[in-house]
Computed example of a mutant assay.
Amino acid sequence: MSDWDDLLGHAFGLLLGQPLAEFDAAGTYAVFYYDDETAGEALEDLDPGELVADIDGRSGDQGGDELYPDRWVPDLARSAFVATEVRPAALQPLLTVTTDDDRALVWGRDIGRALQAGSLSLDELTPDGYRLFPHLLLRPRTDGSLLDAMRAATWTMSAPDGLSDIGDSLVRDGYVTSEVSVVDPRWESALDQVGDDALRRHLRGLCLDAHWARMAGAYYLGPGECPSDFGPIAALPGSKVIAGWEFGEGQGAMVVMHLSEPSVGSHG
């Protein structure tokens, strides 16, 4: 491991409340992201080939220093599609889980295969205002390790490049003075132990208090906390929530999940 892998691993352990080495190494760690502005629109431009493609390897960074999903390399085959009611008959046998609130989950690869086989058409996936049709829970490419899942979840894939300082931006834009902390007090002491100043400032932007997270950065729910959007994934046999974040006023969310599935490179 590189020095930066060591530095990141230590920082992630602080946020998760225990060293990464103490987490179960079996199964796969993955990130899922939800954004209510794009989750349905993504269906309109689906390429069946992308839905069945194996996207293996460590997390990638497509550039920038914003906390945006377009920096990730998407893994659509293993992304999840969730709906409150699934109308297309071709999707019925593909459903992986149905939760108590009648949300069902279909994996991207299964949708892609149905599209390629002609048993499902893109027209049948057109979203509506009530999310009765599947909406995307985007999964970025990672190598299956907890370290790499946390890299993607914190946008530190190319650290020390690509780091941001949201707290400083709020000061420069006149929202707060430099003496005011915008970080959730629950995470201040953990963040103070992060050894690199730039990394510490970057991670602080992912642990803002509930007020400031409405307009910038993210609100860290904490270890084991799952945003409601990811309930169908959390309900999968063998799944375990590692950590969750929320963005804005409920418009977006992200979760790191331990899944009972083969590691990257060995899935079918």
Rank of each mutant, 00 (worst) to 15 (best):
W245F: 11
D229K: 14
S228N: 02
F247K: 13
E246T: 15
G250H: 04
E225T: 12
F247P: 03
E249I: 01
G238F: 12
V241Y: 13
K240R: 15
G222Q: 04
E249A: 14
S228A: 13
A234Q: 12
A234S: 07
S239H: 02
P227A: 08
K240H: 08
G248I: 05
P223Y: 04
G238S: 08
M254G: 11
E225P: 01
G244N: 09
S239F: 00
E246W: 00
I233N: 06
P237A: 10
G252H: 13
G224Q: 04
F247N: 06
D229P: 02
G252C: 06
A253W: 02
G250N: 09
P223L: 10
C226H: 01
P232E: 10
V241H: 02
P227K: 07
D229W: 13
A235L: 04
Q251V: 10
A253N: 03
G231F: 02
I242H: 08
L236C: 06
G248H: 07
G244H: 07
W245Q: 13
F230P: 00
I242A: 08
M254P: 02
P223H: 05
G231H: 10
F230W: 05
A243F: 09
G244F: 04
E225M: 14
C226N: 13
G222A: 03
I233F: 07
I242P: 06
G224Y: 09
P223D: 04
M254C: 11
L236A: 05
G250V: 04
P237Y: 05
G222P: 02
E246P: 01
F230D: 00
I242D: 10
S228R: 15
E225A: 15
V241K: 01
S228Y: 14
A234D: 13
E249C: 14
A243D: 03
P237D: 12
G250Y: 06
P227T: 03
D229L: 09
W245R: 10
A235P: 05
K240S: 09
P237H: 04
C226W: 00
P227M: 07
Q251E: 14
I242N: 04
S239K: 05
